[in-house]
């Protein structure tokens, strides 16, 4: 210790000594909490609180009768099963459509990639209602597709493409496809292409390179995309309501009916709880799979 010189232009740091600047030390933490507080208060009052109130209504009067109805009545069980199945079909369709497209976007030279991404972004940013309307124009009995097929003589009578499950699947796949393309594209774009060349150099065939190297490396993107699409699918309302023509009932449509038509809050709340549980379950399971998959990535 050379002593603390008293002239300006000197600095000294000594330790340890006793003084505690509790406030100065914790000011940043306090400021961080203060930053989060308004949004958290907002989300609590306008998000968590109404959700809790709704879920409480499902067991109002201390009975589980609403849950019993939702989970045992054949009619409603069928709706649940249909919903989960449709979500699965949509996820699969999105994956099959998206994988090659994401690959193309990740390797395409500048201009082509830009145009391709615009073709994905533009529908993504366009209102679901506009897109659903577009599908009605395309798929209707007198729609463009049926007209073209009839005129070309390929079919004798209009195909039933609208107001049924087919219409709902097409519409939902269209809406959710970008959610599958983006995570896949992100993973493929980051991929080290040297790995593929290395595998080829070791004598692997094109198919082997894909199966043993490329696909496993894109698996995190696949899982992320499937999670997103599946979770969004099971809560879908607008597309089944419009393209299903009242013949395709998914859980979200059922919930809306229970409130709007029957004012049956207890049952709607129970259905909401079931839907919520299914959503969170899928989300957590797939996120876990994603985590364990990311570890080596």
């Amino acid at each position: 210790m050379t002593g603390i010189p008293d002239s300006p232009g000197t600095a000294s740091a000594r330790a340890p000594a006793g003084r505690r600047g509790w406030w100065r030390r914790h000011r940043e933490g306090a400021a961080s909490l203060a930053n989060a507080a308004p949004a958290m208060l907002f989300l609590f009052v306008l998000y968590l609180l109404p959700m809790i109130m709704l879920l409480a209504q499902s067991v109002e009067g201390g009975t589980l009768v609403h849950y019993q109805k939702a989970l045992t009545d054949g009619l409603y069980v069928q709706v649940l099963v249909d919903t989960l199945l449709i979500a699965a079909y949509v996820s699969l369709a999105c994956l099959l459509l998206a994988y090659p497209v994401a690959y193309f976007l990740s390797i395409a030279p500048g201009w082509w990639a830009t145009v391709g991404i615009i073709f994905v972004l533009l529908p993504f940013w366009t209102s679901i209602l506009v897109r659903t309307y577009g599908w009605m124009v395309l798929l209707g009995r007198n729609g463009i597709i049926n007209r073209a097929l009839l005129d070309s003589g390929l079919i004798g009578a209009p195909l039933p493409l609208l107001n049924n499950t087919a219409g709902v699947l097409i519409g939902m796949t269209h809406v959710l496809l970008p959610y599958m393309i983006f995570p896949l594209y992100a993973v493929m774009k980051r991929m080290d292409r040297g790995l593929l060349a290395a595998a080829e150099g070791m004598g692997a065939s094109g198919w082997q390179v894909f199966r043993r190297i490329y696909f496993p490396l894109t698996l995190p993107g696949v899982l992320a995309g499937v999670t997103l699409v599946y979770v969004l699918s099971i809560g879908f309302f607008i597309t089944p309501a419009l393209l299903g023509g009242g013949k395709v009932t998914m859980v979200a449509v059922l919930i809306e009916q229970q409130i709007r038509t029957f004012l049956n809050w207890g049952f709607a709340a129970a259905l909401s709880a079931v839907l919520l549980t299914a959503t969170l379950l899928v989300y957590l399971v797939l996120r876990r799979a994603l985590r364990s998959n990311m570890q080596w990535n």
Binding site: T10, A11, S12, A13, P16
Partner: peptide, 28 residues
Amino acid sequence: TLLKVIAGFEIPDEGEVYLGSRNVTLAP
């Protein structure tokens, strides 16, 4: 870390920092 303590980005759990005769341990 020592540099950050001198500059004021870290607050030492113990000890003091002087600039000239001024104690700046807790100064931002």
